[in-house]
């Protein structure tokens, strides 16, 4: 995820969406996919290239949970906090993750950023977590430990 921001490549990514302002949310997703977050530099460039104000871009970035404005760790671990997962112990699982990683929700170690998510559609196999873009089901403390260890130390 530690890819350095590059104006030329960012410009290519933005132009893939035809420079259309209505593609703003999609453009931001593409930038997050590449750079992990939306930097001030990215906000300026997106505003210029889509021909909208910086405040507008800022407004959209801050509205959506998906668009973080600081770099995440190597991996992003999201634990589902919604009801079906609560019914199967996601609160305890979250507490376990926090103590194992030594950070609170929204915090990061070098390798893992811990975040909440509200439903992964895996509610029949809860509790569910997602690491980067891979969903896991029926995750207990043991399974989570293994998954976290696989993220590296």
């Amino acid at each position: 995820m530690a890819i350095k921001y590059d104006k030329i490549i960012a410009s290519e990514i933005i132009s893939q969406f035809g420079g259309r302002p209505e593609m703003l949310v999609q453009v931001l997703h593409a930038l997050v996919e590449r750079y992990g977050y939306i930097s001030d530099e990215a906000i300026r460039q997106v505003a210029t290239e889509l021909n909208i104000s910086r405040a507008e871009v800022h407004g959209v970035v801050s509205f959506y949970h998906d668009f973080r404005t600081s770099p995440p760790a190597k991996h992003i671990l999201k634990i589902c906090q919604a009801e079906a997962c609560q019914a199967m112990g996601s609160r305890q699982l979250t507490a376990h993750a926090e103590s194992k990683l030594g950070v609170q929700m929204h915090g990061s170690t070098d390798n893992v950023t811990l975040e909440p998510v509200y439903c992964l559609g895996n509610c029949a196999c809860s509790p569910a977590v997602i690491i980067d873009d891979k969903v896991y089901g029926r995750v207990d403390a043991n399974k989570l430990d293994k998954l976290i260890d696989e993220c590296g130390v």
């Binding site: 009801e83 509200y118 559609g121």
Partner: peptide, 11 residues
């Protein structure tokens, strides 16, 4: 958008 917890039929 299937945001409701406990739903996955759309998916």
């Amino acid at each position: 958008d299937e945001g409701d917890s406990g739903t996955f039929s759309d998916r």
